[in-house]
């Protein structure tokens, strides 16, 4: 048990799947908001650094929560691309957002029976509804080359998002969920940091008992 506990302490990231399995219960709503915000934030900056295009989120194993509270799309269970279908085709943002919304909903629904449904707060249900019903950007709102420092948390930005077309739109909706939008980056990073820390604590505790 001690060596496993020691090995765990070395970990600096956990997948959402590991978190769900460990607690064997769904994530809470604030964690859902936070993972959406942080994941879209890293996808957005990744796109601007011209890194390899992101893929659809296929399972909670693809979502990694890091010790510092950042959230990335990892390789999950690295599967070879299906025959003829290149896994590395650039996926439009809307497709990645839709897949993220589905996985986040499933994380909120984790452990519930097929005929049971969790009552979500209207704003979170709306976020997930918008994420899973995205509309292909018509190019006029090209997300890729927006100014890096254009924050999503401007207070005077009253343009409420009605339709999601970009990672930035998701982040704006998540920021609008807070009393002060400008708190979004720190707040959501803190929520994810705590999620990682609490899970590691439980992991280590269970390993010691084993």
């Amino acid at each position: 048990g001690r060596s496993l506990a020691a090995a765990l302490v070395m970990r600096d990231a956990l997948s959402l799947e590991e978190i769900l399995q460990l607690y064997s219960q769904p994530i809470n709503e604030e964690q859902a908001w936070a993972v959406c915000y942080q994941c879209c934030g890293s996808l957005r900056s990744r796109g601007r650094r011209g890194e390899s295009p992101s893929r659809r989120v296929e399972s909670p194993a693809d979502i990694r929560i890091w010790k510092d509270g950042t959230v990335t799309l990892g390789d999950g269970a690295r599967r070879p691309p299906a025959e003829g279908k290149s896994e590395y085709l650039h996926r439009p943002e809307t497709e990645v957002i839709e897949s993220l919304g589905i996985i986040i909903y499933k994380a909120l629904d984790y452990g519930l029976k097929e005929n049971e449904e969790r009552e979500l707060s209207p704003p979170l249900e709306q976020l997930i509804d918008y994420m899973t019903n995205t509309v292909e950007a018509d190019g006029s709102k090209d997300e890729g080359y927006e100014a890096l420092d254009e924050g999503v948390e401007e207070e005077n930005d009253k343009g409420d998002v009605e339709v999601i077309q970009s990672y930035r739109d998701v982040m704006k909706l998540c920021a609008a969920h807070l009393p002060t939008r400008s708190d979004a980056p720190n707040h959501y990073q803190a929520v994810c940091r705590a999620l990682f820390a609490e899970t590691m604590e439980l992991y280590t505790f269970l390993a010691r008992i084993k």
């Binding site: 219960q25 769904p26 809470n28 709503e29 839709e98 919304g101 589905i102 909903y105 499933k106 629904d109 519930l112 097929e114 005929n115 049971e116 449904e117 969790r118 009552e119 979500l120 249900e125 997930i128 509804d129 899973t132």
Partner: peptide, 23 residues
């Protein structure tokens, strides 16, 4: 199982769970 921190209701055909399960 302890009391859950969220309310559970009957799944609704027009609810978000039904919509997402069709995706």
């Amino acid at each position: 199982k302890g009391k859950s921190l969220y309310n559970i209701k009957q799944k609704h055909d027009s609810g978000i769970k039904a919509k997402i399960s069709m995706k």
